[in-house]
Write a protein that binds this DNA or RNA. Structure first.
Length: 186
DNA sequence: CGGTTTTGACCGGCGC
DNA sequence: GCGCCGGTCAAAACCG
């Protein structure tokens, strides 16, 4: 069940669905998810109880900044043994924020550079979910992008963690600045 | 060539 | 204990 009211920030790109397409021209090469197979899930809109956690944000806890510590990269990636504890012994939850956006494209550029590290089929949803990680060194911020099956025009982006570095993108255009404002105004 | 995407394997948690 | 499921890894392919 959902705990405490979910923090769902939904804003519509008022007018230009192509907004993100423009900005992200640099690495907009993700070849969409159109070609995905069938897997006819059509029960609910796509949110199961399990998924519900994504839409609640325990940010009251640490948005203050404490959790950012992980940015230091506590992951002991030893060149030799990679299979060491992949799961950090982290007890505190990272803040997660779900954004819902109307957009034709999957790539919503927020000014950061992301590297895709996974893609999985979503239950009750014919579209897969994409997992991205911030490429900045020491920044463990992750995000996952998902599209609603029954409403292909809606893209849900869930951010996890807080960036420990400034945006590196050229902010010389209005759209990107707007995007940043939307992100920071939580 | 170096960074990124692709994609199946793998892993931990959870329910039965 | 087993199998499902969501999330992550990693090697190879890919691309500018």
């Amino acid at each position: 069940m959902n705990v405490t009211g979910g923090e769902i920030f939904s804003y519509s790109s008022s007018s230009s669905p192509s907004l993100s397409a423009d900005i992200s021209s640099s690495y907009l090469s993700l070849n969409t998810v159109n070609n995905n197979n069938h897997a006819n899930y059509e029960k609910m809109a796509g949110l199961t109880e399990k998924d519900s956690w994504k839409y609640e944000s325990p940010f009251a806890v640490d948005l203050g900044g404490s959790m950012v510590t992980d940015g230091g990269g506590d992951e002991p990636k030893t060149a030799s043994g990679k299979t060491n504890m992949r799961k950090s012994e982290k007890k505190i939850k990272k803040p997660k924020h779900a954004f819902q956006t109307r957009s034709q494209v999957d790539i919503l550029d927020d000014g950061y550079r992301w590297r895709k590290y996974g893609q999985k089929a979503v239950k009750n949803n014919k579209f897969p979910r994409n997992y991205y990680r911030c490429t900045h060194q020491g920044c463990n911020v992750k995000k996952q992008v998902q599209r609603l099956s029954h409403d292909e025009g809606v893209v849900v982006t869930t951010y996890e963690g807080v960036h420990t570095h400034p945006i590196e993108k050229s902010t010389d255009n209005f759209e990107s600045i707007l995007t940043q404002m939307q992100i920071y105004s939580r």
